[in-house]
């Protein structure tokens, strides 16, 4: 009787203590196409490179064929590479589209070229009853981006906290991992090599990577 019980306990342990597999369910996201590099004003005679990013239903960035056009080609012409040239004064739209979705920005042609915003700001708030607070700024710095948390940043201690760019306010699906959170409080900076990401995401998430728990969400104000 002793032996049988011991054997039972042994095999129960073996079966119970194996490393299992968790399947992360696919999330379906709405398609998203965004013009990420834009000039709000363009000097007549000058050119500017417009760029756009497409997110598929998987939430991930995908390469797709983009079609560029302007609402008034007499004022502003644009090549399929996204390079636009101001031909005359006026106001028109730059439109980019895929087979199923489009995005547009207003462009004024005239005396000067003004590149749209070069910085985005936002504020953190906690999720799932964890405390995360403080301000942040995402800036274009030459050929890269720089995400800076202000000195008033603080986050609850946690295991394996990472910083993500994401378009989902409760998951990091389709997001970009910027690396491990450098400190639980105070100013800190994360460099992002791909400038295309400047306008691509709506949120900064502080995320417990090993256990898959969002700790905090930073929402861009612009």
């Amino acid at each position: 009787m002793y032996k049988k019980l011991l054997i039972f306990l042994f095999f129960a342990l073996l079966l119970y203590s194996c490393i299992g597999t968790d399947i992360v369910e696919d999330e379906v996201f709405p398609e998203n196409l965004q013009i990420t590099s834009a000039a709000s004003s363009l000097k007549v005679g000058e050119s500017f490179q417009f760029r756009a990013i497409y997110f598929g239903t998987s939430g991930k960035m995908e390469d797709v064929n983009l079609t560029w056009r302007t609402a008034n080609p007499n004022i502003l012409s644009i090549a399929q590479s996204g390079i636009a040239t101001a031909l005359d004064t006026g106001t028109t739209y730059v439109i980019v589209s895929t087979a199923s979705i489009s995005d547009s920005v207003t462009v004024t042609t005239g005396a000067a070229t003004v590149v749209s915003e070069t910085e985005r700001r936002g504020t953190f708030a906690g999720l799932n009853s964890y405390d995360v607070e403080g301000d942040f700024i995402l800036e274009q710095k030459g050929s890269s981006l720089e995400l800076t948390f202000s000195g008033n940043f603080s986050a609850t201690q946690g295991p394996g906290l990472h910083v993500y760019l994401t378009n989902n306010n409760n998951s990091v699906s389709g997001g970009v991992d910027l690396g491990e959170l450098k400190a639980n409080s105070g100013a800190q900076t994360y460099e992002i090599e791909d400038t295309e990401l400047f306008n691509a995401y709506s949120y900064i998430m502080i995320y417990c990577q090993p256990f898959g728990v969002p700790f905090g969400l930073g929402t861009f104000d612009n």
């Binding site: 342990l13 203590s17 299992g20 799932n128 009853s129 256990f211 898959g212």
Partner: peptide, 26 residues
Amino acid sequence: GQYGIIADNYFTPAGDIVDITTTGYY
């Protein structure tokens, strides 16, 4: 004795339950 727990939920500091990657202790 043999003791075991497998959990894919966690009580947060506020007492709410959130999903986590499944973890076990034996």
